[in-house]
């Protein structure tokens, strides 16, 4: 991984719903709404001065999140920035509202084989598709925050470092040869 990321970009998804759909709307429902919101998010990310960027997508002002919209806003956004032809290097964290959103988020992530770092009110969690090894490594990194390159091998072993690098490839953690590994939540607080 190259340069350190830019400072956290917080995106109020509820406000975007109002801007992109209608001022009084707070529900994230229907595919066209989801598509419009995702495109608005991409514009904001594109405006950040340098890559990679770390964005916190904040759904806390969204009342209803249906599956079609979750697929458009969350899954398709992640898929786009994981592809080889992605517009730029970008990492995402999500803040959502408990079980109201959890179900939709988990379902769409699982359907695409994706995972995401999400705070549902009780701290950051890894939601979606991940192996047991990935979850263990992610939790250890989340607990520690940052782990330098020397400590990485000592703590995780060679195989574990590969898992951490895999998490970075999936955009679920930060990894740099010289910097070591960093949890996205830590990166969000102290880029």
């Amino acid at each position: 991984m190259g340069e350190s990321p830019t400072p956290l970009l917080t995106i109020d998804v509820g406000a975007i719903v109002g801007d992109a759909v209608a001022p009084a709307r707070r529900d994230l429902v229907t595919r066209p709404t989801g598509r419009a919101v995702r495109e608005a998010i991409e514009v904001r990310i594109a405006r950040t001065t340098r890559a990679p960027s770390v964005s916190l997508l904040d759904f806390s002002q969204v009342r209803i999140l249906d599956f079609s919209c979750a697929d458009e806003v969350i899954a398709k956004l992640l898929v786009r920035y994981l592809r080889r032809d992605r517009p730029r290097e970008a990492f995402f964290l999500f803040r959502a509202v408990g079980d109201n959103h959890r179900h939709a988020v988990e379902e769409v992530l699982g359907r695409h084989g994706l995972a995401a770092v999400c705070n549902l009110g009780g701290g950051y969690e890894l939601l979606g598709s991940a192996t047991g090894e990935e979850r263990t490594a992610w939790r250890a990194l989340e607990h520690k925050g940052r782990i330098g390159p020397g400590e990485l091998a000592a703590r995780f072993g060679e195989d574990g470092v590969l898992v951490i690098r895999g998490l970075a490839d999936r955009r679920l953690a930060w990894y740099g040869r010289t910097d070591g590994a960093c949890a996205l939540s830590t990166l969000a607080r102290n880029p």
Binding site: D27, V29, T30, R63, I64, L65, D66, F67, S68, N100, H103, A104
Partner: peptide
Amino acid sequence: VQFSVILS
């Protein structure tokens, strides 16, 4: 919430 999602 779930009821609204079903309707949607």
